Computed example of a mutant assay.
Amino acid sequence: MNTTVTEIADGIYRFSTLTDAIPGGFTFNQFLVKGDEPLLFHTGLKSTFESVCEAVRTVVPIETLRWVSFGHWEADESGALNGWLAAAPHSELAIGVFGTMLSGNDQATRPPRSLTDGEVLDLGGKRVRWIDTPHVPHGWDAGLLFEETTATLLCGDLFTQTGDAAITEGDIAGPAAALEDMMHSTALTPRTAPTLHRLAELRPSALALMHGPSFHGDGAAALHTLAADYQSRLERERESAEHR
């Protein structure tokens, strides 16, 4: 198991583990926001914990981690949570209110810090804002973090795609749509596209994908394009249902 390290924005590091889970290669990525109170976004799977720990140690001592967070409860996002909480004894899980209610109070070895929609954690040199995105891309408890000083959206499973590139300035919506055709992982609801359009209003200059390369460029345009694809899929599903 090999985890690579890339600084994708000032003080934001990507820890990427490439697997053959899907043809074309599939990455599992965690992100460290480095500040006076460092925050790790995504815990990774239990099986990748040691590899990711070794990689994180090249940037900060593990015991200095103050916050652990992720977008929703799922093995690749939260599986190694308690391993990180044990390795960093002063750390806390920071998760949305729904995530705390549904799973956090039961699954975490220490009580979570619940974040309301729009709440900001000041990390000292960096500021991360929690954004509720229920059922986008899936899960009632879903949410994302936006790092305000670098305009980086830590966007979890949005734009999921294959490949092992670390950073791209190219199209990420097209490859995401291609994988959606195969995996059908996104919850298509009337709120899916509007949620993405709302995220676009943040005007992110970097998008940190959990599965795929980090994107530099017009993040708002990429989010609008993804929203249009999901809206089209929803309309096709509706038409198909009407004709059944």
Rank of each mutant, 00 (worst) to 15 (best):
A108N: 05
P190Y: 13
D76Q: 04
A228L: 13
A228R: 09
Q107S: 09
A21H: 06
W140P: 11
V52F: 12
V33W: 03
T58Y: 08
E54M: 05
S69Q: 03
R244I: 12
L202C: 01
H216L: 05
S47T: 11
A108S: 15
T19D: 04
A187M: 12
A87S: 14
D122R: 04
P61E: 02
N82D: 08
L102R: 15
V59W: 11
R198L: 05
T3D: 14
W140L: 15
D132Q: 13
L144D: 02
H72E: 08
N105V: 15
L102N: 12
F49R: 13
R198P: 08
D10M: 00
S47K: 09
D10Y: 01
V5R: 06
A87M: 10
L45Q: 08
T116D: 12
G125Q: 03
G139V: 07
A88F: 14
D10F: 01
G174T: 09
P204K: 03
N105D: 15
R110H: 09
F28R: 06
H224M: 15
A88R: 13
E50W: 09
V68E: 00
I62D: 07
S69D: 05
P134T: 03
I12D: 02
S69H: 05
T150V: 03
R66D: 07
R57S: 12
K34F: 06
G219Q: 02
L158D: 00
F159K: 01
T109L: 14
H216V: 00
M101F: 10
M183E: 13
N82L: 12
I131D: 01
N2D: 14
S205K: 04
R203N: 03
F15W: 09
M182I: 15
P111T: 15
F15T: 07
F159W: 03
T192L: 14
I172C: 07
L158H: 04
A9P: 00
L154A: 06
P89K: 10
R233V: 04
A221I: 05
S205L: 02
L154W: 04
G25H: 01
D218Q: 06
S214L: 07
V52I: 15
H138R: 15
I62S: 06
H184E: 12
E74Y: 05
M101C: 10
H184A: 10
P213A: 09
L179G: 06
W140K: 14
